[in-house]
Amino acid sequence: MLNIGVKCLAICLAMGVSYAAMADEWVPDKPIKLIVPYPAGGTSDMIARLIAPDLGAALGQPIVVENKTGGGGVSGTEAIIGADANGYTIGIVASSFASSVHLVPNLPFDPINDAQPLTMVTRVGVALIANPDFEAKTIGDLLAMAKAEPGTLAYGSAGNGLSGHFAGEAMKLSAGIDLIHVPYRGGAPGLNDVIAGQIPMMFNVISSVLTSVQAGKVRPLAVTSATRSAVMPDVPTLAEAGILDAEIYEWYGLIAPAGLPSEATARLHAELVKVLQKPEFSDRLADLGIEVVANAPEEFGAFIASEVDRFGALIKSANITLE
């Protein structure tokens, strides 16, 4: 009799515990789609594919990475945001998620209200690099040169409306100088032109220029991060050179459609943070100068909102347009 009573109690307790677990914890019961709005082989695709296996193992369901490209990332982002907010569709977005609202006419989504941020995955500063033979050897030299001959020096970037372009325009505004912006189709051809001396300098993300800097093929003049980069500790920040308000990062983050139940947000966030903080993930990126962030959904959301405002102001005053 007692035996049965104990068993009953045990069953009741077990049920209670599992009930509690169900209330707290969202458990997916089918594969989760991770949409990448950019082509395979790019940074966002690489990050998504690095995270997917471990995140899938932690959640007990496979994560299917799907590249949905087009419209400079707009089509894929639209697909993330337009999906059902049930946790089975998440996606990766980049810096342009915040800036595109000011650049793309009739953008089919609102980065603040239509998305449930999960976490910022990584961020990396932008470096100003120059050909080693270029007369300006430091950021100070460059500012002096640019003031002496306004509108004659050119800088390259990986493309219009990307982090390198913003960094250049922010520096121009803050330092009161005039430079010619030469956009390239991606960072690599621009970097080649700097190495070959076809263009004196360029703004490009630290991770993309690191090997050329280490090989001495280009000279780093400054970085746009708030603090010096661990992989280039000798290179001053723009702020140190007196150029304020030019803190620019290229970042990647994970979002879900707005209206995601809070249990799903919490679970996805918790598992993501665990995956991102694994040393094999963070160390590998740290070697490239990329910082793993893994912040809270609220912090990421606040960051996106502040970036939308900041870029709005920058785009307006620097008169950057895609139209």
Binding site: G71, S75, L103, N106, P108, N160, P183, T321
Partner: peptide, 12 residues
């Protein structure tokens, strides 16, 4: 320049 050309407003 980042201008959209001949897209007729289609994101595709």
């Amino acid at each position: 320049s980042g201008v959209q050309r001949m897209t007729f407003g289609m994101f595709d």
